[in-house]
């Protein structure tokens, strides 16, 4: 059963690999050129890799809550037609509760930046 997907992955990797190999022949120089990062014609004053100020970190927490919820959503989606109304009510009460949290975070400005 997994033969197909493994073959797909292998072909994709082989394809990317051979393009890189081919590039070694066709490029004017196979060695990557060492350069400074582009900064409008100036040298970088610092390394760019740093503690980046992610302004939307509140949204990431919110996202996490909902993302974990997807764990329940997929199995639920498969059986909801069978289980009937109670399953719908239970799930959407839960989603509703989560969404109240989202609305609260939104009103607090958690989805706005700057």
């Amino acid at each position: 059963m997994f033969d197909g997907i493994i073959t797909m992955a292998a072909i994709a990797l082989a394809g990317v690999g051979s393009i890189y190999l081919l590039h070694g022949i066709t490029a004017i120089n196979a060695d990557p050129l060492a350069v400074l990062p582009f900064q409008s014609g100036w040298q970088p004053e610092q390394h760019a890799l740093s503690r980046y100020h992610v302004r939307w970190y509140l949204a990431t927490l919110l996202f996490l809550a909902f993302d974990v919820e997807m764990l329940f959503m997929y199995p639920w989606a498969v059986v909801v037609a069978e289980l009937g109304a109670t399953a719908i009510i239970e799930m959407f009460l839960f989603l509703g509760a989560l969404f109240v949290g989202v609305v609260w975070a939104w009103r607090e400005g958690g989805l706005r930046w700057v």
Partner: peptide, 17 residues
């Protein structure tokens, strides 16, 4: 919070600038 500061120059060689 303590966050890193990067000094980046915009221009002169920059499209739409």
């Amino acid at each position: 919070l303590e966050m890193d500061v990067l000094y980046v120059r915009l221009g002169p060689v920059l499209p739409h600038w």
